[in-house]
Write a protein that binds this DNA or RNA. Structure first.
Lengths: 336, 336
DNA sequence: CTGAAAGCGCTTACAG
DNA sequence: CTGAAAGCGCTTACAG
C-alpha cells in the first residue's frame, strides 16, 4: 500500500535510479529533474522503505544502544534517561534511528549475536561499565563499529566517550583538603567497575599532592547504592574521619542517614562530598556538595562520534573525555 | 561476509526454501533434515538478516516505542525507565526488538512519518498522556497497529494499557476521609493530561461518596513538578485545609517544603497523600503516603498486547486497566 | 545527466 | 516433504 520509488518514478516520468539519486542527494541529476522529483516526494509524503534500503546498501542508518541492567540503582539515577536523551536527540539531527537493548543477564548471549549479525544496525553504543563485560569482548572480536560509554583501560584501541572520573574525584577531594580536612574517608564503587576505580584514583591523586598518606582504614568499598553507603559508615566511623568523599550521590545519601543516626553533625564534624549530581542531591539534609557530570552531552557525543566512525572509518580510535564540575552546596561546610 | 541462508543450504545440501522453513519453524520438513539444518545453524552461529526478512515478509519483528519529551519531570521520575524496562523485557521474551523514539517537539512531524511509513516497525507503543497529542491523531489516521500507554477518553476504539488513576486517587482520598479529614485540598495535574484529570475525578468520587461538597477553593492546578506543588500551597493555605491530596509525588514534595516553611505540621495539621510512589517518596520528611502504580507491568503488558494485535488482528480494541495500591507511610497521620 | 539490469538475503505461493 | 522461481523495494556499477 505505501508508495515506492517506482511509483515516484512513474509519476515523474523518470527511472527509479534517478529518484534514488535525488533522495540520496547525489549530484548527477539535472536541477529541473531534481526539483520535480522533490516536489512529488513532498506532495505524496513519500518515505523510502528502510528495510529495502538496508538490504541493498548494507546501511540501515540505525544505531544500537545497549544498556546493561545488571548495575544497581538504575531507576533512581537519571543516568540512563539522560544518556538516552542525548543519544536520541543527536540521532534525530543526523537522521539516524536508535534501537534499544536493555541487556538483562539471562538474555545476554542472544543479544550480542542479534546485534552483531542481524544486519539491523550500522553500529552500536554500549554503556557498560563492567571491567569484564562479555558483551565488550564480543564486540571487540566482531567487526561491527562500536563505541563505549566509559573508557576501558585494558583495550587502548577502543572508541569511547567518558566523563573524567579521575579529575572529578580529584576536584572533590582537593576541595575537602582546601577546607582543612585531613582525615578524608572514601566510599568507593565496586572493584569491577571502571568508573569506581577511576574515582578512587582521583582520591589518591589529591591526597598525594597534599602529602597526605593513603590510609586503607579510611576506604570502604560500596556498590553505588544508598544502602551500601549506609553500612559503609559503620566501618569508617571507628577511624574518626573528618570528611567523606562518596563515589556516588546515592551512597552519600545513605551515609548521611547513618551519620545522622550516629549523631554526627554534617558538615561540622564530618564534611561530605558526593559524585553524580543527581536531582536528589539538592534535597538531602544538608544539601549535598557533589561532582556534576554532563551525561546528556556524553550521549550526544557518543552518537555523533559513532556516526563519524561509521561514515568515515579511520584507524585512529576516537576517544573523548569530558570534564566534570564541582557543585558546592552545604554538606562540605565551606562557607565560601 | 556474514553467512546467508544460501550458505546454510549449500552446506546441508538442501534448498534455501527448506532452510527458511526450519528457521521459521514451519512443519513440512522431515525430522532428519530439520535436525541437520538446526545443527549447522547452531554450529556456525547463523543469524538471519532482519532487513531482508522484513523486506520479503513485510514483518520486521520490531516494535516502536515513542516517548514524548514535552512532559515535565522526565528525569526525576523513574516512569520512563520502568516503562522501557517492562517493554524491553517482554520484547526479549517474544523475540522482538525495540526501536526508541524520544519525541522532541521540533522533530515531531518527521518522527510520525518515519514511524508510520518507513517499514521498520510492525507496530508502535506511544506513551503520550496529552489529550490532544498530534502523534495520536496521526496514528489513529494511519494503518500501523499501535497501542497507547494511557487511555484516551475521546477515542473509544483505541488499544491501550493504563493504570487506574481514578481508583488510585479515590483510594488516596478515601483514606484521608477515613482518618477524619474533611477539608481535603488537592493539587491536580495539568488540564490537558488525561492522567491528571482522572486523578481529579477520583478525588471528586470519594468526596461525593462521603457527602462532602466539592469546594473549588481547595483545588489548585499544578503541572506535576515539585515547584508547582510548592507554589500551589500558597493558594490553598488561606482556605484552611486539614489534608492534601497531591496528584504526583513530585508536587507533594514541593508542597511538603512549603508547608514546612509555613510552620504547618505534617501530618498533625495537614495530612498529605501523594501519587506515583517514586523512590524519593520514602525519603521525604515525613515519608510520604502515596499511591503505587505498576509501571513496569504496564510496559510489559503493552508489549505483549501489541504483539497480539500484530499477530492476531481482531476488531475488538484491547483495553486493560491495572489497579493501583495505597502505600501507607507517615505523612497521612493514620497510626494504623 | 539518465536508464536498464543485477543484486542485497530473505519469504512464499506454486508445482511436483 | 522439497525445490525453482518470483518478488519484496531499494542501491549501484555499467553503459550510453
Amino acid at each position: 500500500m505505501p508508495l515506492t520509488l517506482e511509483d515516484i518514478a512513474r509519476i515523474c516520468g523518470v527511472s527509479r535510479s534517478t529518484v534514488s539519486r535525488v533522495i540520496n542527494s547525489e549530484r548527477n541529476v539535472s536541477p529541473e529533474t531534481r526539483q520535480q522529483v522533490l516536489n512529488v516526494i513532498q506532495e505524496i509524503n513519500f518515505q523510502p522503505n528502510l528495510a529495502a534500503r538496508g538490504l541493498a546498501a548494507g546501511k540501515t542508518r540505525v544505531l544500537g544502544l545497549v544498556i546493561p541492567m545488571g548495575v544497581g540503582a538504575i531507576f533512581t539515577d537519571p543516568f540512563f534517561p539522560l544518556l538516552i536523551h542525548g543519544v536520541s536527540a543527536t540521532c534525530n539531527e543526523l537522521d539516524y534511528s536508535v534501537m534499544l537493548w536493555l541487556d538483562e543477564p539471562e538474555y545476554e548471549r542472544r543479544t550480542v549475536r542479534q546485534i552483531l549479525y542481524n544486519g539491523l544496525v550500522d553500529g552500536v553504543i554500549v554503556s557498560s561499565m563492567l571491567m569484564d563485560d562479555p558483551i565488550l569482548t564480543a564486540l571487540a572480536d566482531g567487526k561491527l563499529p562500536y563505541l563505549q560509554v566509559g573508557r576501558h583501560p585494558a583495550n587502548p584501541r577502543v572508541n569511547f566517550v567518558d566523563v573524567d572520573n579521575i579529575q572529578g574525584s580529584y576536584l572533590a577531594v582537593s576541595h575537602l583538603l582546601k577546607s582543612d580536612r585531613r582525615r578524608i574517608a572514601t566510599i568507593t564503587g565496586p572493584k569491577n567497575m571502571i568508573a569506581g576505580m577511576d574515582r578512587l584514583q582521583g582520591y589518591r591523586l589529591a591526597l598525594e599532592e597534599w602529602g597526605i598518606p593513603f590510609n586503607p582504614a579510611l576506604v570502604v568499598e560500596g556498590n553505588f547504592t544508598d544502602l551500601s553507603g549506609y553500612s559503609a559508615i559503620q566501618h569508617i566511623l571507628p577511624h574518626h574521619p573528618d570528611a567523606l568523599f562518596s563515589a556516588s550521590d546515592a551512597m552519600a545519601s545513605g551515609a548521611l542517614r547513618a551519620l545522622h543516626e550516629a549523631n554526627i553533625r554534617v558538615p561540622e564534624d564530618v564534611a561530605v562530598v558526593g559524585f553524580d549530581d543527581i536531582p536528589f542531591a539538592a534535597h538531602t539534609d544538608p544539601p549535598l556538595t557533589t561532582i556534576h557530570q554532563p551525561i546528556q552531552r556524553v550521549g550526544s557525543l557518543a552518537a555523533q562520534t559513532l556516526v563519524e566512525i561509521i561514515e568515515q572509518p579511520t584507524n585512529q580510535p576516537r576517544q573523548v573525555i569530558l570534564p566534570t564540575e564541582l557543585i558546592i552546596r552545604s554538606s562540605c561546610g565551606c562557607k565560601v
